[in-house]
């Protein structure tokens, strides 16, 4: 399949790869759990704490509306932050690893 036979388990043991894998796993799982929990607070909150959602904040705009709107910004925020970290850290580590193997 690959043009050149790689020793995959050796790469997997390479300290650079171990570092990349460790950093990536923590980041990805952590932020995925955060975004999922934040999202499910919306239907759960609407169902079990409607009183909270009804509190008016700005004129007629209530907490429920602002919270739903915040979901969009939180998702975008996570996406941008991930892009930032991935471009800076993960891609750099990957490049270094690939260069080392060459």
């Amino acid at each position: 399949m690959a043009e050149k036979q790689q020793d995959w388990s050796a790469i997997a043991r390479n300290p650079k790869f171990v570092e990349l894998h460790r950093k990536k796993t923590t980041f990805l799982i952590g932020w995925w759990i955060f975004s999922t929990v934040y999202y499910f607070l919306l239907p759960i909150g609407a169902a079990f704490a409607p009183g909270l959602f009804k509190i008016k904040i700005l004129g007629r705009i209530n907490i429920g509306y602002l919270f739903a709107l915040s979901q969009f910004f939180v998702s975008w925020g996570i996406a941008m932050y991930y892009a930032h970290v991935a471009n800076k850290d993960f891609d750099r580590l990957t490049r270094e690893l690939v260069d080392e193997l060459r």
């Binding site: 690959a2 790689q6 790469i11 997997a12 790869f17 990349l20 894998h21 990957t94 690939v98």
Partner: peptide
């Protein structure tokens, strides 16, 4: 190891 390295790094 092979798929894990590949999917993380894009090698090969």
């Amino acid at each position: 190891d092979e798929i894990y390295v590949r999917q993380n790094t894009g090698i090969g």
